[in-house]
Write a protein that binds this DNA or RNA. Sequence first.
DNA 1: GGGAGTAGGTACTTTTTGGTAACCATCGAT
DNA 2: ATCGATGGTTACCAAAAAGTACCTACTCCC
Lengths: 128, 128
Amino acid sequence: MKQSYNNGVEATLGVIGGKWKPQLLCHLGNRPQRTCDLRRELPAISQKVLTQQLRELESDGIISRHIGGERAPFKVTYDLTDLGRSLGQILVQMSVWGEQRASQVPDMEITHDHGGFSNIGLKMDSGI
Amino acid sequence: MKQSYNNGVEATLGVIGGKWKPQLLCHLGNRPQRTCDLRRELPAISQKVLTQQLRELESDGIISRHIGGERAPFKVTYDLTDLGRSLGQILVQMSVWGEQRASQVPDMEITHDHGGFSNIGLKMDSGI
DNA sequence: GGGAGTAGGTACTTTTTGGTAACCATCGAT
DNA sequence: ATCGATGGTTACCAAAAAGTACCTACTCCC
C-alpha cells in the first residue's frame, strides 16, 4: 500500500521509529549479526517482534538478509545496507542529543544495557 | 514518573516521535504561533491531540507557552525554546534523508501540504 | 439574547503497536 | 527417540496512541 507522509521527517521516523529499531540498527552498525546473536544481545525482545522489525527494516532497504547453509540449522545473517549506513550521521546526532538531554533531566535515565551509539560512528557513515 | 530509554536515539524519539510533532516543530520553527494559527495550518489535527502534543513538547522543554491578554479571548502563543531550536540540525537532516528516500521509492509520497523543513534551516539552529 | 472566536477539557472509541504462547521444520548430539 | 539450537509463523491479547464527539468559559459583536 502507498504510504504517505507530510514531510521528510515523518518519512524517516517511519523507518527508524519502531520500538526496537534503534537498538537493532546499533548492533548491526557494529557488524553483521545472526538472529540468535541479536536475541542474545536484546533478551527482552520476543521472537515475533524481532522478526517483524527486521522484516520492516529489510523491506525499507535498511538491512539485508543472508541465508547461510543449505538445509541445516540455517545461519541467517543481517547486515546494514549502504542506505542503512547512510542513516549513521542522523542516528549519532540523535544519540548525542538524547544523551545530553538525559544528563540534564533527573527523571530520565538511559540504560546502556547492550551497547550504544557512541561507537557506531566508527562503523557507520556518521560523517565524523 | 521516571522514563527509561535504552539509548539516546530512543530518548530523542520520545521527544519528536509524536504523530504531529514534526509538523508542529516545523511551523513553530518558522515563527511563534497561536493555537488558532496552528489549527488553521494543520486542519486535520483535532483540538484534543493538538493540546496534548503541545503539552508534551512543552513539558519536554522544546516549546514555551505564553498567554497574552488578561481575561479576554486569550492569545496563547507557542514558541520554540533554545532546546527546541537545538533540534534543528537533526530535523533538517531527517527531512533531507526522508525526502531523498521518498523520491526513490515509488510507493512513498510526501504531501507538502503545509510547508516543510526545507526552509526551517534558516530559522532554526540547523548548523547549515 | 444569540452567534462566532478563542483555548481547552473529558468520556469514549478506534487503530496501531507490541507482547504471549504455542506451533512447525531441520539438524546434530546424547 | 528426545532434546536443544536455529529461524521462523500464527492466533490471540494488551497497552499505547490517536480520533470523535461533546462540553466549559470568556468576550466581543450584532
